[in-house]
Design a binder for these strands. Structure first.
Lengths: 210, 210
DNA sequence: AAGTTTCTCCCCCCTTTGTGGGATTAGAGA
DNA sequence: TCTCTAATCCCACAAAGGGGGGAGAAACTT
């Protein structure tokens, strides 16, 4: 039996969730709350297997609720729900450890599947949301060209820079002289269009050059 | 009509894909190849709407194929297929711009849905893969505590450090003296357990402290 | 064979950064 | 009220970094 806890301020929507869960023999609705205010306490009390969390709620919204749940160290599955699929909130929810992210326009037929999926260790997402998520990852290929410009040795050096090595440490690690390190770094700066170690590190990490 | 191009070395699997596509009235199989060797040429010739790309193939595997496709600037949908769901390759595929990522154990009933989803701008993923993807995002919450330790002003300074500002630039940007900047940075280094600008920048970016 | 790139090393000069102390003021909390 | 913290500023010294130049050997292109 899957224990489901719901945070949803819209009465109609809450009602339809309730009906769906009532019709599912393997699910039990543990409660519905209209905002995330006492989410942590309620969760500790009712120990749900999964939480459906609306993002748009008055007083305390779903993102705040999620953040508190994770800050408390609770590792319950939390599937976010919203009518919008704006990048910013998807990103935020995912960074805060959402288990899944589904849009409210999800057809009821798939709704229960998503819940079961989440409970079984999956990460249900509406396809359009999934696409957004992937976009967050995919870097413009143009930037990767920067990396291609670097010679093998330069890449070695950059990698160590990113790890926080000093020139001296790099020299001894690569068994080359300090001056050689300096030469490589000069070239790297030219190619990445930066002029300090921290800029190079920032660019390398942000463009996953390493 | 959806034009589908398949790269798959396993004869049996290729055959079953062929049968599925033949049975689908809205899909047309444009061809099956046993490795990604001439992928770019073939794609330019046949102009498929979607590509099913096996990852594990001899001679030239799917990840290499995908990379070449993106390097060429082709923005066709490419759905990766594999029996394994190991983190490394999922990550690689996504970074290289895969449209979706499905496991071969996907039931045939869902298979066609996934293809249609991809063509319609979605990003089909087997739930377990989706979970992996989310994990790549979710940072250990412990690290976020580092940020909480920083005072508002320290965060200001860190943000500018990440943008590649020098001490002087930070000072003039925040309209405080160079010495104050130095003080803040000392504290930041203490709290982040680092002792150079580039380490601080690396840590800030990697833990999304900004 | 001649040219180009890569990797290696060297010099000088100056700026920036890191670290060790301080000190003062304003505000928050006990 | 007293204490603590955050935020501001100061000094001095040493270490690290950045920019300019040059140069030789090896490998790879043409």
């Amino acid at each position: 039996m899957i224990g489901v806890l719901v945070f949803e301020d819209n009465r109609d929507f809450a009602e339809s969730i309730k009906e769906m869960l009532d019709d599912a023999p393997d699910m039990e609705l543990l409660g519905i709350f209209e905002n995330a205010k006492n989410a942590v306490k309620v969760i500790k009390l009712l120990k749900p297997d999964i939480i459906l969390m609306d993002i748009d709620m008055p007083v305390k919204d779903g993102l705040e609720g999620l953040r508190e749940i994770r800050t408390e160290g609770l590792d319950v599955s939390v599937v976010m729900q919203t009518v919008f699929e704006d990048n910013e909130r998807v990103f935020q929810a995912i960074c805060d450890g959402a288990t899944g992210y589904i849009l409210k326009k999800t057809p009821p037929s798939k709704f229960l599947d998503y819940i079961r999926e989440a409970v079984n260790g999956g990460a249900p997402m509406t396809p359009s949301v999934a696409r957004q998520v992937l976009k967050l990852f995919t870097l413009p290929f143009q930037h990767k060209k920067d990396l291609l410009l670097l010679t093998a040795r330069e890449q070695d050096v950059l990698t160590l820079l990113v790890r926080g090595f000093s020139y001296k440490m790099i020299a001894s690690d690569l068994k080359i002289s300090l001056e050689t390190v300096r030469s490589h770094i000069k070239k790297i700066y030219e190619k990445l269009h930066v002029n300090s170690k921290s800029e190079a590190v920032a660019k390398a990490i942000q463009n996953r050059l390493t």
